[in-house]
Amino acid sequence: DWPASYFWRELAAFYPQAKVILTVRDAARWFNSIDNTLFRFMRSPVTPDDEAARRQIVMARDIVQKRTFDDRIDDRDHVIDTFERHTRAVQAALPAERLLTYDVAQGWEPLCAFLGVPVPDQPFPRINAQQELLDSHAGRYNLS
């Protein structure tokens, strides 16, 4: 996730023995999710007395909106294309033994096998916290 995903090349180079987990999902559904959460936060004014929120938005606007999506977060096709190019770039750059391309719908098994750890004796968490995220930030941002 951002901001770390923007710096994946630098992180992979700095930690050459680290395994990398590239989470993937349907691009159209991903766009709908990010458009309703992170992009929504970035479009909103920040409560003037909340310095932490202001700094988060400034960082997000720089790394996500400007650097990642070329100031085109309202261009759905461009955002989806950037998302898909990112996936292909990571897959092309890292060897298979170091990279797991992973959809959370796959559950524990491929993730645990890749990491060399036992499968937990509990169900894989399956939540969509989008509304919870929006609710938790409602006082910090004008999301209307």
Rank of each mutant, 00 (worst) to 15 (best):
Ala4Glu: 15
Arg54Asp: 08
Gly107Gln: 06
Asp35Trp: 13
Phe31Glu: 06
Pro45Lys: 03
Arg85Cys: 08
Asp135Cys: 11
Arg40Phe: 00
Gln65Ile: 12
Ile21Phe: 13
Gln131Phe: 11
Ile80Arg: 01
Tyr141Thr: 00
Val46Trp: 09
Ala4Gly: 12
Arg9Glu: 15
Gln91Glu: 14
Arg85Ile: 15
Ala113Trp: 02
Pro125Ala: 08
Pro3Asn: 04
Cys112Ala: 07
Thr23Tyr: 13
Lys66Thr: 10
Asp103Pro: 07
Asp49Pro: 05
Arg55Lys: 11
Pro125Ser: 01
Cys112Pro: 07
Ala53Asp: 01
Val119Gly: 05
Thr82His: 09
Arg85Phe: 10
Asp49Ile: 11
Leu38Cys: 04
Glu97Asn: 13
Ala129Lys: 09
Asp135Gln: 02
Tyr6Cys: 01
Glu10Tyr: 05
Glu132Met: 07
Pro118Gly: 08
Asn36Gln: 11
Arg61Asp: 08
Arg55Ala: 14
Ile127Gly: 00
Val119Asn: 00
Gly116Tyr: 13
Phe39Gln: 05
Arg67Met: 12
Val46Phe: 02
Arg98Pro: 03
Phe83Asp: 08
Thr87Arg: 05
Thr101Asp: 02
Leu111Lys: 02
Glu51Asp: 14
Lys19Leu: 14
Ala53His: 02
Trp108Ala: 12
Pro125Asp: 02
Ala4Ser: 14
Ala60Trp: 11
Asp81Val: 14
Asp26Pro: 14
Gln131Gly: 09
Trp108Pro: 10
Asn36Ile: 03
Pro110Ile: 00
Asp70Met: 07
Thr37Asp: 00
Pro125Thr: 05
Ser33Lys: 03
Asp74Thr: 04
Ala113Lys: 01
Pro118Glu: 04
Arg40Gln: 10
Ala93Leu: 13
Pro118Leu: 03
Phe39Leu: 01
Leu115Phe: 04
Ala89Asp: 14
Arg126Tyr: 14
